[in-house]
């Protein structure tokens, strides 16, 4: 059974456009994803595709003008706003994107200790700092004194010491050097092996492939493909969606060829498939409506012509 299941999730924001006139922008559309116990799922997509919002929706920390539709099920029971508030920080934790999420007036050491749930907090914190090559001196620093890479390691160590059931990591890798990334891969795997369900939100395909079991590809607010890691190989022949293929081919270690254009903004989405304006194989049918999800070769794809 899945630890965390997300069914038909949609998120929209209401804002004032002019005077008292309001407008609603839908940023996530009919998203489905599930994570099993001991599994690592990577959600890969470009910036601005709504990946972080997904994490914030699971934790219930979206701003007040957001409205959420759809169902999130945790451990067989629906996650209501109240339940989210009880569970976040203990059973469901997030590794946030930046140090801005830390308390700016609290020293790093004691801050990490607050997230330890079992055993001696100080010992656990010292152990994890040693593992991530953070010098004892870091304990006495304030968040603003950390370099980018150090901050990332501190945030990661907070999630690891919490031993939560669901760990959601929002962009855990940018700015880290190869050794620390290696260490991060190992820790996520350890977390999963200890029974946590891990969701990695990242744009770094290479990291996702090394760490995760399956990859959910995100484009313009929805998942266009869910594929096992092994499908990402060669020229991407096994991949299902044209966007995923383009992502794979654009990597510097592959062909480094970009496709034209940019991802549509949330309030200017085309009516049909969001990728159609950039897709080589798009037909008139693609412009009519968003393709339904279909299962294909052990994965999911939202494309009329996927084979």
């Amino acid at each position: 059974m899945s630890t965390l299941e997300i069914h038909d999730l949609s998120i929209s924001f209401t804002k004032y456009s002019k005077g008292l006139r309001q407008e609603t922008t839908q940023v996530i559309h009919n998203l489905n994803v599930s994570i099993n116990k001991g599994e690592i799922v990577a959600v890969v997509g470009s910036s601005g595709s709504g990946k972080s919002l997904l994490a914030h929706a699971i934790l219930g920390i979206l701003p007040g003008n957001a409205s959420v539709k759809g169902r999130i099920v945790y451990d067989g029971q629906e996650l209501t706003e109240q339940r989210k508030a009880e569970l976040r920080g203990t059973e469901i934790v997030i590794v946030p994107q930046s140090v801005k999420f830390l308390d700016p007036l609290m020293k790093i050491g004691s801050q990490v200790q607050t997230s330890v749930r079992k055993g001696n907090a100080a010992v656990a914190q010292k152990k994890i700092f040693e593992k991530y090559k953070l010098k004892p001196l870091v304990e006495k620093l304030f968040p603003f004194q950390l370099s980018g890479g150090m901050a990332r390691r501190v945030l990661l160590s907070m999630a690891v010491v919490s031993e939560a059931n669901v760990v959601i990591a929002d962009e855990p890798t940018p700015g880290l050097d190869a050794d620390v990334i290696k260490e991060a891969e190992i820790s996520f795997r350890e977390l999963a092996d200890n029974g946590s369900a891990v969701m990695l939100i990242t744009h770094d395909i290479e990291f996702a492939l090394k760490t995760a079991d399956k990859i959910a590809v995100f484009y313009a607010g929805t998942t266009v493909e869910v594929a096992p890691v092994s499908d990402f190989s060669g020229k991407g022949e096994n991949l299902r969606h044209p966007y995923t293929k383009a992502l794979w081919r654009a990597l510097p270690q592959n062909e480094f060829i970009p496709i034209k254009g940019s991802q549509p903004l949330a309030n200017h989405l085309p009516k049909g498939c969001p990728f159609a304006p950039r897709c080589e194989n798009a037909t008139l049918d693609c412009l009519k409506e968003m393709p339904e999800e279909k299962m294909l070769r052990g994965g999911m794809v939202r494309c009329l012509y996927a084979t």
Binding site: S46, S47, G175, H203, I205, A246, F256, P258
Partner: peptide, 17 residues
């Protein structure tokens, strides 16, 4: 300085090209 670190691979390739 880490100009394309935060970006997906398509945007990265686009900018570098």
């Amino acid at each position: 300085d880490e100009m394309t670190t935060m970006l997906d691979s398509i945007t990265q390739a686009q900018i570098w090209q």
